[in-house]
């Protein structure tokens, strides 16, 4: 895999950063996945950057994780509560080895447990976490700065992108290699 270069520009105002996104995309034909906005709080989709299409793709698949895991949990619950009870077959209280209501209770709980696990997995998978490597980032993002992060494939493009960002009001530029 060839190297890529990144530019991170920090902005202070929402208005400024919204203007900087499009020129950069146009200048290099940056794909949806190669441009990012870093912020300390969740902005509504498309408020800072027009990447709705990509996110729409992600979101339409994200629910599958808890959903499918829920099915797994359902199966686990049925097997655990009903199946083992049937196999082990010890009679208690005149009840049949397979009982519907207790199996239902356990199945409900397990479905939800696996749903929780699925939700977390969906977050980790689609957000690309955990990633403890040194990535393009600036601690000032945590203090309210907005970062525009772009990925390009040559040194010249990197310089150009930095230039555009500065022109559009970035007060700080950070350049990096292979750390998108």
């Amino acid at each position: 895999m060839s190297d890529h270069y990144t530019v991170l520009g920090l902005y202070r105002k929402v208005e400024t950063i919204t203007k900087a996104g499009d020129p950069i995309r146009e200048a290099f034909g940056v794909k949806d996945g190669d441009i990012e906005v870093l912020s300390s709080a969740a902005y509504p989709d498309g408020a800072l950057l027009d990447d709705k299409e990509l996110l729409h793709q992600v979101e339409s698949r994200q629910f599958l994780f808890p959903f499918l895991m829920g099915f797994v949990g359902f199966g686990a619950g049925v097997i655990l509560a009903g199946g083992t009870g049937y196999i082990m077959n010890l009679i208690v209280g005149g009840k049949s080895p397979f009982t519907y209501a207790p199996t239902g209770v356990i199945t409900y709980e397990f479905t939800l447990l696996f749903g929780v696990i699925g939700s977390v997995l969906s977050l980790l998978y689609y957000a690309g976490l955990p990633n403890w490597t040194d990535r393009a980032y600036d601690p000032e993002v945590a203090d309210g700065a907005l970062g525009l992060l772009v990925k390009v494939y040559s040194k010249e493009d990197q310089e150009k992108a930095a230039k555009i960002m500065e022109d559009y009001g970035a007060y700080k530029i950070k350049k990096g290699v292979n750390d998108f």
């Binding site: 010890l90 009679i91 208690v92 209280g93 005149g94 009840k95």
Partner: peptide, 17 residues
């Protein structure tokens, strides 16, 4: 009891019929 209340509530099958 044939339908013993004590049996079914034991979580570890310590009592059974």
């Amino acid at each position: 009891c044939a339908q013993a209340p004590c049996e079914s509530v034991c979580p570890v099958y310590a009592t059974y019929h």
